[in-house]
Every structure is written in C-alpha cells, then in structure tokens.
Amino acid sequence: MRHVFVETNWVVDYAAPAHHKKKAAVDLLDRAATGELKLHLPSICLNEARRPIRELKPRHEADAIRQFLRWGKASGRVSIDEEATALRVLSMFESRVKEELKQLDTTLTSLRKHPGLDVFALDDAMLERAIELSGGDLEFVKPFDQAILAAVLVRAETLKAAGATDLSFCELDGDLQPWGKNGVSKPALTKLYDAAGIWVYGDFDLAVPAPPAS
C-alpha cells in the first residue's frame, strides 16, 4: 500500500470554494477512494485550514470587476447590456461562494469520515518529537510546522515498523520542503525525511521531484 501524507495546504486546496479549489488536490483524494493509496492527515490541519479558507470571500474579486464595469460604462467601453450580464454573473458567483463557505464545517467533517483518508490526532510521542525539533538546526521552522513535521515523522516511522515501504509527503510549504531556492538541499530536513523513509513531493500529483529508482 502506498502511504501519502498531506497537511494544511492540501485541505485548503481541496475544501476551498470552487474557483479556488485545486484539481490536483481533489484528484489525490479520488485516488485514495479507489484504493490506489492511503492518505494521512494530522487532525490539527483541519482546524488550521478554516481561517485561510474563510478568507477566500468573493468581495474583493467582485468589487474589482464592479469597479471595471463602472469605468467601462462611463467611458463607453461597456454597454448597458454587457454591464447587466456581468452583474448577473457576479451575483451568481457571490451567492455560490457564500453558500460553499457556509458548508465548510460540513465539508471538513466529511473528510474525517472519508475511507481513503486517515485523520489522526497528535499523541504523546509526536508532541515529544515536536519539542525535540524546536531547537538546533530546525530553529527556522515555525512552531506549528514543527508539530506537523513531528506528526508526519512519528506516524511514518510507525507505518515503516509495520512493514510499509512506500511513504511520501506532499508538501507545498517551502518551510517544510527539504530543498530551498534552486533545489539546494536543506541537510537537517533531508536527514529527518531520509531516516523516516519519506519521499517529499512538491505537488499533489506525486510527480515532482521524481523519486530515485531505488
């Protein structure tokens, strides 16, 4: 069985309103639903995702278009009919996004029950590992990210001890990627992921960077 870890950025890209939703994030859960792989998500990521998703309100985007319409109408570049059509579409857009945001808690709750997704709580071993990661070469990692990293490492080590050999982590957050600018390795993070047997992808397609043949 292929085991894939995801965190807050995946939740945001999956559960965001339709116009912000990322197809690759949705496809990854679909792949888990078919049994191709098993997704693992620290439960604290569901709570962390709420704020950035709720901030994806349509007001700023819609207001920018309304401002353009006012300018276009005043300058004669937008007709009355074009303005009316655009305003109807904007109204539909705002209504749809508001409705999706109202359903956010339901959407996040459904993830907890998804058969292809293992939502796990932090245990004592993970909290202890987070404390261990709080100093030394990993001081650049934020406290919350340290908790996520600890959760992924400990759960991966448990799976590995039980015989799992295909472990990976989809990580779009540069702070937890084991490489920096121009692909230069971050030794401290690379060592941790290697020890846990985790390959880190920078996308949700499980494609980049490609793992070695071994």
Rank of each mutant, 00 (worst) to 15 (best):
E139W: 11
V89F: 13
T165N: 11
S91Y: 01
S75V: 06
E100Y: 02
A74K: 13
V97T: 11
E82C: 02
A151N: 03
S95K: 14
G163I: 04
R88N: 13
A86H: 06
G76H: 03
Q103C: 01
D105R: 10
A162N: 14
T85H: 12
A164T: 08
L90Q: 09
R155A: 04
S134I: 06
A162C: 09
V152S: 03
S134A: 15
F140A: 14
S110P: 07
H114Y: 08
E132I: 12
E139Q: 13
L87W: 02
R77V: 12
D175Y: 03
E100C: 00
M92V: 04
K142G: 14
E99A: 15
A161D: 12
D145R: 07
R112K: 14
T165H: 09
A130F: 05
L127H: 13
V152I: 15
A162F: 04
R129Y: 00
F140V: 06
V154M: 05
P143K: 04
D105F: 01
F144M: 15
L172Q: 13
A125H: 11
S91G: 13
L87I: 13
F93V: 00
R129I: 02
V119S: 11
L122S: 14
H114G: 09
D175E: 15
R155Q: 14
V78N: 09
D166T: 10
G136F: 12
C170E: 02
I131R: 14
D175F: 01
P115Q: 08
V141A: 02
E82D: 12
P115T: 12
V119M: 04
V141C: 04
V119R: 07
T107H: 03
F93C: 00
R129W: 02
K160E: 08
K102C: 01
L122I: 06
S79H: 06
F93M: 05
T106I: 04
K113H: 15
A130E: 05
G76T: 07
F144S: 12
F120D: 10
P115R: 07
D118A: 11
E128V: 11
T165Y: 01
A130N: 10
F169N: 01
K160G: 08
V119I: 10
L111Q: 08
L127T: 10
K102T: 11
S168E: 05
K98N: 15
A121W: 06
V78M: 10
C170M: 06
E94K: 00
E132R: 14
V97Y: 00
G135N: 11
D173L: 03
E139G: 01
L101I: 09
L172Y: 07
V97K: 00
A86N: 11
T158W: 07
E94Q: 06
L176R: 05
G136E: 10
A151M: 01
L176T: 07
D145C: 07
R112E: 15
P115H: 11
E99C: 02
L159S: 04
L159T: 02
L90S: 08
L104C: 09
S79A: 03
S79E: 06
D118K: 01
A151H: 03
R88S: 14
C170R: 03
L172K: 14
V97S: 00
V119D: 10
P115M: 12
V89S: 12
L133Q: 05
D145W: 06
E132W: 09
V141Y: 04
L111H: 09
V78K: 10
D105M: 03
A151I: 03
T107C: 12
A121F: 06
I80W: 08
D166Y: 05
D81M: 10
D173A: 12
L138T: 07
V154W: 01
A74H: 06
